[in-house]
Amino acid sequence: MKLSLEVNKTLHELDVPPNTLLVDLLRVNLALTGTHVGCDTSQCGACTVLLNNRAVKSCSVLAAQIEDCKITTIEGIGTADDLHPMQVAFRECHALQCGFCTPGMIMQAIDLVENTPNLDKRGIREGLEGNICRCTGYHNIVRAVASVAGAVD
């Protein structure tokens, strides 16, 4: 089926089978491999991207569902020379170890900070429930998000 959608501010016209998942469209059709597939069962959040500025798990969304929508992936928020403030905070706070969960974690964190009024550290911990990290133990991740949100304990 023919689809048109905007990914990282670029309009794409694609022709994909109806059972294509958004994450496969991003990784295979558009070669945007920054979005990771972790569990592939909508538990881990590694595949989180922004759909019209809200975090979704792209392994559980059909490409067909998002005709004419706006998608933002980790590739769309900053460059190596001009990182997004959330990426800077993750680097400053050492909020990653292996880095596999990091793209999803950052996209989720951006949704939280942009869409949650009066975000505190508890709100950050609850807000990150859909993202699983198996290395760092979350503490530094919460610190990084809190530093961007200006959140206190």
């Binding site: 959040g45 975090a55 979704v56 798990k57 949704d111 939280l112 429930e129 859909g130 993202n131």
Partner: peptide, 9 residues
């Protein structure tokens, strides 16, 4: 319900 991503969809 679920997590933030699930609540968005």
């Amino acid at each position: 319900i679920g997590d933030n991503q699930v609540r968005n969809r």
